[in-house]
């Protein structure tokens, strides 16, 4: 079989199978002939080494099944459904991150006001300064804890966006794109720093808050010291 015979048989076989991008495939084999001829092989040798054109054409037939209309419609339907779910989940997650961030900022602000004894708008009633300082510090630590949690959540949210986009591409290509990991690739040092910060600040918040509570309760001689101080009235 010479080159012309091979190519004619091959392209008519591709056409029968309804393979797309035939020109592209044929060009690749034309190139192959050109390279081999330049290396001194005869057309017959090259064609023989390429293999049976019919079998070769069949190997191009295993294309993704997305071409059939019903499958495409099904894919669109699934994608649309999961988009709605993803949007709702995304909104909840975003809201959670925003709320957590806001609580952190408020907590840190309150902490600084207390620690520096700045009584904005006369909000606080008189308590010993030691307690102001301890409560203030505990609130600052609580804020730091909240902030590191929001950073962690944000990173997970961003990774989930990537995972979702990959999953969506998989629905449409119906093929073997690898799945993405659900965990963000944060790198060890960053993860360690974040979780350490979160744990230390949570512990510091707990300890300082309890210590301050005990001191104030002893000072006022009442475990429900806020009754004496006229809080929440």
């Amino acid at each position: 079989m010479n080159k012309q015979e091979f190519m004619e048989l091959f392209s008519s076989e591709l056409e029968t199978l309804g393979v797309e991008d035939r020109a592209d495939i044929i060009a690749e084999y034309e190139n192959h002939f050109a390279f081999r001829l330049a290396d001194g092989y005869t057309e017959e040798e090259i064609a023989a080494r390429l293999g049976d054109p019919k079998l070769l054409a069949l190997q191009f037939d295993s294309e993704p099944p997305e071409r059939s209309a019903p499958r495409r419609i099904a894919a669109c339907f699934i994608a649309a459904l999961s988009d709605v779910l993803a949007l709702v989940l995304g909104a909840v997650l975003t809201a959670w991150i925003v709320v957590m961030g806001a609580i952190s900022v408020a907590s840190v602000t309150l902490g600084f006001c207390l620690a520096l004894n700045v009584n904005v708008f006369d909000l606080f009633t008189e308590v010993p300064y030691v307690n102001c300082l301890l409560f203030g510090l505990s609130f600052i630590f609580f804020g730091i804890f909240g902030a590191s949690c929001s950073v962690f959540c944000t990173m997970y949210a961003l990774q989930w966006v990537r995972v979702y986009r990959r999953a969506r591409a998989r629905i449409f290509s119906g093929s073997s794109l690898p799945e993405k990991s659900a965990h963000p690739a944060l790198g060890r040092p960053l993860t360690m720093t974040l979780s350490l910060t979160a744990m230390i600040s949570l512990a510091a918040f707990g300890v300082l808050f309890i210590v301050s509570f005990v001191i104030l309760a002893l000072h006022e001689g009442n475990i429900a010291f806020w009754q004496n101080l006229g809080w929440f009235n």
């Binding site: 192959h32 081999r36 390429l50 070769l56 191009f60 294309e63 093929s175």
Partner: peptide, 25 residues
């Protein structure tokens, strides 16, 4: 060329694989 020299396959077999890898992204 490289693959058909080292692994015993027909010269034409690599092109369908390249195409599949391309359509898989």
């Amino acid at each position: 060329e490289t693959l058909s020299e080292t692994i015993d396959i027909s010269d034409g077999a690599v092109y369908p694989i390249l195409r599949k890898l391309k359509s898989d992204g």
